[in-house]
Computed example of a mutant assay.
Amino acid sequence: MSTKILVLFYGYGSIVELAKEIAKGAGEEGAETRLRKVRETLYPELIEKFHVPVENTNDIPEVSYDDLRWADGLAIGSPTRYGNMAGGMKTFLDTTAPLWSAGELYGKPVTFFTESSTIHGGHETTILTMSTYAFHFGMVIVPLGYAIPEISSTTTGGSPYGSSHLGSKKGLDENEVKIARFQGKRIAQVAKKLSGS
Rank of each mutant, 00 (worst) to 15 (best):
V7A: 06
L8V: 06
Y10A: 15
G13H: 06
A19G: 15
A23Q: 05
K24A: 11
E28A: 09
E29N: 10
E32K: 02
T33Y: 01
T33I: 09
R34V: 04
L35M: 05
R36I: 03
K37V: 06
K37R: 13
V38M: 10
Y43L: 13
L46K: 13
L46T: 15
E48Q: 12
K49A: 15
K49G: 11
F50K: 11
V52M: 11
E55K: 09
T57A: 05
N58L: 06
E62I: 13
Y65W: 08
D67V: 07
R69G: 08
A71Q: 04
D72Q: 03
D72Y: 01
G73V: 03
A75Q: 03
A75G: 10
I76D: 07
G77D: 11
R81H: 15
Y82C: 13
G83D: 04
A86H: 08
G88Q: 08
M89C: 07
M89A: 09
M89V: 06
M89T: 04
K90Q: 09
F92H: 06
L93D: 04
D94G: 12
D94T: 09
A97Q: 14
A97E: 14
L99S: 09
A102L: 14
A102N: 14
G103Q: 10
L105Q: 06
L105F: 07
T114P: 04
S117W: 04
T118F: 01
I119H: 09
H123C: 05
T125R: 07
I127P: 00
Y133P: 03
A134Q: 07
F137V: 12
F137D: 14
G138C: 13
I141Q: 03
I148R: 02
P149M: 08
S153L: 08
P160Y: 01
S164A: 15
H165C: 14
G167E: 04
K169F: 09
K169N: 15
E174W: 07
V177F: 02
A180M: 00
G184K: 00
R186E: 14
V190M: 06
K192N: 11
G196T: 07
S197A: 14
